[in-house]
Simulated assay, not measured.
Amino acid sequence: MTSEELDLVATLYRNGVKPLQIQAAVAGQFPGCQPKLKDIYNYTSKLRNQELIGDTPMKVLENFLRANSFAYYTRENATNDKTEDIFFCHNKSHKMWRALPEVFLIDTTYNTNMYNWALVELSVWRRHQSHFVSPTCF
């Protein structure tokens, strides 16, 4: 692919366009080019790795949450100062949760096991600093 085509791929990727749509856009804008989907995936992976240089994946996530005004809370391990737990949600969802904290909705976007069930692990803290973990399959 030419540098102009790669620039288009990078622009579309940074704007959240999916690889299949990127492939169609490149083919539409550059009629002589028929990029393979694997090439699109490889190039977007290269872009993603360039964004990670010098930062841990957790730091990248935290920067993303901060830049997009998500509400998030983290808990670090006292011995090694590494983040162990993170809770995040969109500000609108956070306001609804604060208004009625007894109700909690979980949306599982990705299926994670061979039975096509989504796995969610909840760690619930009680007022007396005790907690329980409830892994659940839906």
Rank of each mutant, 00 (worst) to 15 (best):
A78Q: 09
I106V: 15
Y41H: 13
K18R: 15
P57R: 01
T109R: 13
S130L: 10
D107Q: 06
K82S: 14
S134T: 14
T108S: 11
I40G: 08
D81Q: 08
M96Y: 05
Y110C: 10
V26F: 03
L65Q: 03
D39V: 01
G28Y: 09
Q21E: 15
D85Q: 05
S123C: 05
V9G: 01
A25F: 08
P57A: 00
K18D: 11
S134W: 15
A27R: 09
Y110F: 10
K92M: 08
G32W: 06
T44A: 09
V9T: 08
E102F: 06
M114F: 14
L52T: 03
K59Y: 01
G16T: 01
V17R: 04
H90N: 11
F70E: 08
L37W: 13
D7S: 11
Y41I: 14
N80I: 02
N111G: 12
M96F: 03
T74W: 04
M96R: 02
E4Q: 09
V133A: 14
N63I: 14
A99E: 02
V124S: 06
V9Y: 05
A27M: 12
L105C: 08
A118K: 07
T44R: 08
Y72W: 10
R48C: 01
S3Y: 06
N77C: 05
C89Q: 04
E121M: 13
K38D: 15
Y13N: 00
N63Y: 12
V103P: 03
L52S: 10
W97R: 02
V17Q: 05
E102K: 07
M58C: 01
Q129I: 02
S123D: 07
Y41W: 12
L105G: 10
L100S: 05
A27N: 10
N15Y: 01
Y13L: 01
C137I: 02
W117C: 09
T108K: 13
I86K: 10
N68F: 15
G28S: 10
W117V: 07
M1Q: 13
N91Y: 12
G32V: 08
M58A: 06
G16S: 05
Q29A: 13
R14G: 09
L8M: 10
T11F: 01
D39L: 12
Y43K: 09
P19S: 14
G28L: 06
A118I: 03
P35H: 08
R98K: 01
T112G: 13
V60R: 00
K92A: 05
F64W: 09
K92Q: 06
V103W: 00
I40S: 12
T112V: 11
A99S: 00
K59G: 01
Y43A: 02
V60C: 00
W125F: 11
R127E: 11
N91H: 06
Q21W: 14
V26I: 15
D85V: 10
Y110P: 12
Y73K: 03
A24P: 04
Q129W: 10
Y41K: 07
A118H: 11
V26Y: 00
P101F: 04
I106P: 03
I40F: 05
P101K: 03
I53L: 00
V120R: 07
L52D: 02
L65M: 08
Y115P: 00
M1V: 12
V133R: 15
K59N: 04
Q34Y: 04
L100F: 07
T108H: 11
F138L: 11
C137R: 14
L122S: 03
K38Q: 15
H128F: 14
V124F: 09
K36D: 15
K18P: 02
S134V: 15
K59W: 00
R127W: 04
A118Y: 07
Y41E: 10
F70P: 08
M114G: 12
